[in-house]
Design a protein around this nucleic acid. Structure first.
Lengths: 153, 153
DNA sequence: GTAATCCTTGACGCCGACGTCAAGGCAAGG
DNA sequence: CCTTGCCTTGACGTCGGCGTCAAGGATTAC
């Protein structure tokens, strides 16, 4: 299998595979003509990398998983180093989530306060508004229609 | 007030202020010698920017707040455009938090599964372990010490 | 006078994970 | 032979928010 096919089967691009190779993450055998050659096990490595990347792992963080697979283990996370990365990532995620929730709360409070302040200003600036629209509707006209007065009286 | 002092009072650097000016966010008056000159109102603008930046707002997202203050409003979020940014940010944060929580759950599940798998392998590979440590401790030795047998008996 | 400390503009560096372009090689079909 | 489509390496571009250095002018301290 050549680079284009592997890329397509993994849902990525040839450029990405060359990049991984340049980082020493996914080395390739070479055909006589110099073309990169891959097999099914490379596809498994690549899928492992892509999955973790989708989770937001840095490339470097995927390395233990890849090496674990290449060492012959059944899964990329069968090795202690991979588990350590999982744990670090969980802690990182927890911290990030806490932080974002804190920011969310503060921004939400700011918004609420600013909206309240604007409502105050509106009340102070504009004349006390009625509950009806200022533009008369067909309904308004109907109510003012002398033809209906007889019914009300 | 010159750039260094303003930067220090806002807890940032002169480089940052020049950058903001280059983005048209915080223009400066100039003294005769060409030095940038700022006043207290600039400090307020800058603090508004920094606060939002700390919340994770992009620089561009702070622009409505700054313009609002410069327009003479009491607060940066007194204007509709600022409120719109708040709302967009809240939606963005909610989406991001959901995403991170989803990732966290998946990574957590992976870790649990991998740990369970490793425990299985350990049981299959190593001989059934005892509950005690294999390396004798001072405690172990003491218990085997003939000197103490009299006391136990 | 001169050293130290400010200030100025300009320009390159950084980070991560690639995208994109350039110039050229190799294989296969018509 | 020529085109088409894959492949190769090399190198620069992207994005945001600055950091950092260079070369030189202004001000202040002594």
């Amino acid at each position: 299998m050549r680079i284009g096919e592997l890329a397509e089967r993994a849902g990525t691009t040839a450029r990405t595979l060359r990049y991984y190779e340049s980082r020493g993450l996914l080395p390739a055998r070479r055909a006589v003509n110099g073309y990169r050659t891959y097999d099914e096990s490379d596809l498994r490595l690549l899928r492992q990398i892509r999955t973790l990347q989708d989770f937001g792992f840095d490339l470097e963080e995927t390395r233990p998983f890849v090496e674990c697979l290449r060492a012959g283990h059944p899964a990329g996370d069968s090795c202690p180093a991979s588990l350590a990365v999982y744990r670090r990532k969980l802690a990182e995620l927890d911290g990030l989530i806490d932080q974002l929730q804190s920011v969310r709360a503060q921004v939400g409070a700011q918004l609420a306060q600013a909206e309240a302040a604007r409502a105050d200003v509106m009340r102070a600036t504009a004349p006390p508004p009625r509950c009806e629209l200022t533009v008369p509707t067909a309904q308004d006209i109907t109510e003012q229609d002398p033809m209906n007065e007889g019914e009300r009286t």
